[in-house]
């Protein structure tokens, strides 16, 4: 990306880029992806217990949905909130599908990175995966680099206080869980 293009990327809002994409400018979608795809993949990876392949699938499905419904975008929420919501929903669907395929009592698969090496923080992921769904999402979004706490609460459609409360509760559980392990 040359200097002018980068400046353009910084200057133009998400909604304007989406509008350009709707008018037929595929590069606009590329610019949106360059803003969000990395963070969305990271979040999806966290929500899907570190399984990169599933995270990529979730994000691609999220982009499919964005592409399909972009012409009907009315700005009820910001593009960022919308794309995060879409991604989280896809992650939920995929997690549900995987749970059904694996069976309700089956253990989570071992977390490996792209090179197939077991992650060092596998115990943390396991503890996060054991959290109730709402608390798991809250605590992951709370420490997600792409969103502020206010934005994260907006994505989940709850009050900021509720969001913080859930995150705190989740963190408390994690400490207890990891402290016992230790």
């Amino acid at each position: 990306m040359d200097r002018d293009a980068m400046a353009d990327t910084i200057r133009v809002s998400d909604e304007d880029l989406l509008a350009r994409f709707v008018r037929g400018d595929d590069d606009a979608l590329g610019q949106l992806a360059s803003r969000y795809e990395g963070t969305l993949l990271g979040l999806a990876r966290g929500l899907l217990a570190g399984r990169t392949t599933l995270a990529e699938e979730a994000v691609q499905e999220a982009w499919v949905r964005v592409i399909r419904f972009a012409p009907g975008f009315e700005g009820r929420a910001s593009f960022k909130t919308w794309v995060y919501r879409v991604t989280i929903n896809r992650c939920r669907e995929i997690a549900r599908r995987e749970r059904r395929a694996r069976g309700p009592r089956a253990p989570e698969p071992e977390h490996r990175d792209a090179a197939g090496v077991a992650e060092l923080n596998g115990s943390l992921r396991a503890a996060v995966a054991a959290l109730p769904g709402r608390e798991r999402e809250a605590v992951l979004l709370c420490y997600h680099a792409g969103l502020s706490q206010r934005e994260a609460a907006g994505v989940l459609g709850i009050a900021e206080g509720t969001f913080k409360s859930r995150a705190r509760s989740a963190l408390k559980r994690l400490r207890r869980e990891l402290g016992e392990d230790a």
Binding site: A33, G46, T52, E56, N121, L124, V139, L140, A145, L174
Partner: peptide, 13 residues
């Protein structure tokens, strides 16, 4: 915790 959801290199999804 931050590392669990850290951004990764975009794959062109």
């Amino acid at each position: 915790m931050s590392g669990l959801t850290a951004p990764v290199e975009p794959t062109g999804a």
